[in-house]
Computed example of a mutant assay.
Amino acid sequence: MRWRSAMDPQQMLSAPVDDGKIDDFLDELGMDRTWAEGYLTGLLSGPELIPVNVWINEFVDDETFANIDTANEGLQTLMALYNDVNTRLRESIDSLVPDEDAVEACEDFCSGYVAGANLHASWKRDEAAYMLVFVFAIIADEVGEDLLRDAKGDVIEDPEAWRAKHRANLLEYVTDLRDYWKERRVPTRRTEAKVGRNDPCPCGSGKKFKKCCGQ
């Protein structure tokens, strides 16, 4: 699916946070908010800027929205969550990461984080950084018993004790990966031709650029 919207990009970026609206929308999608926040944390921590039409496919499909109005409202809600996670990742990262005693929440967060991190091709090619993603996958209980090995390659004899130990370090891991990729992030450069004011708007609205996102 290639998801499109006629919403003004600036409106998306400035979407206000309404926690009740976000929770209601995620409930409609059958999605846990902790998983969603983990997904966006992994997505936003990585080395590349992932386009909206790529990461949004984890949330919606062709049947999610009946018309462009509900589609725009849904996108604005998701962008509000995206902006909220992005702000907290930079300013209050401890508010994103579940407490080590909240076992199910840690599992959901780590499961989402792995999905978000996996969208980054550069991340998957970095062995050191990706080893921590494997730790997240084990915390999320998404790794088969035959693959349960630590960083040294030794078999994990007591998976539950191992998970408890690493849940206690989860905030440190999330912070380390955020900082690791922040130092290595390559600035995004424009590669496509600039859209002319009389060209069709690339958002897919069918309007001219000057009458749509170019206003």
Rank of each mutant, 00 (worst) to 15 (best):
M1P: 10
M1E: 06
R2T: 13
R2W: 03
M7L: 14
M7I: 10
M7W: 00
D8H: 11
Q10P: 00
Q10G: 03
M12N: 12
L13W: 06
L13A: 15
S14R: 14
A15N: 07
A15M: 09
V17G: 08
G20L: 14
D24G: 03
M31T: 06
D32C: 09
R33W: 05
L40I: 03
S45L: 02
P47W: 02
V52Q: 03
W55G: 05
T64K: 08
N67D: 15
N72R: 13
L75Q: 01
L75I: 15
N83M: 13
D84C: 11
N86F: 08
R88N: 09
E91W: 02
E91V: 07
E91R: 11
D99C: 01
D99K: 04
A102Y: 02
A102Q: 14
V103M: 01
A105C: 02
E107L: 04
F109L: 13
F109Y: 11
F109D: 04
F109P: 07
C110P: 03
G112C: 07
Y113F: 15
V114E: 02
V114Q: 03
V114I: 08
G116T: 08
G116S: 06
G116D: 08
A117T: 11
N118F: 07
N118S: 15
L119F: 10
L119M: 13
L119E: 01
S122E: 12
K124V: 03
E127V: 13
A129P: 05
A129W: 00
Y130L: 01
Y130Q: 07
V133G: 04
A137Q: 14
A137Y: 05
I138V: 15
D141A: 14
D141V: 13
E142F: 02
V143F: 07
V143K: 02
V143T: 15
V143M: 14
E145K: 11
E145D: 15
L148M: 14
R149G: 00
D150I: 09
K152C: 01
G153A: 06
G153N: 11
E157N: 03
A161Q: 12
A161N: 08
A161G: 04
K165Y: 01
K165A: 10
R167V: 04
A168F: 00
A168C: 01
L170W: 06
Y173L: 14
V174N: 00
T175V: 01
T175W: 00
L177G: 00
R178V: 10
Y180H: 13
R184W: 07
V186Q: 15
E192N: 10
A193H: 08
V195Q: 02
V195D: 09
V195E: 05
N198R: 10
N198A: 05
P200T: 12
S205Y: 09
G206M: 10
G206P: 10
G206Q: 07
K210S: 02
C212P: 04
C213F: 01
G214D: 02
G214N: 03
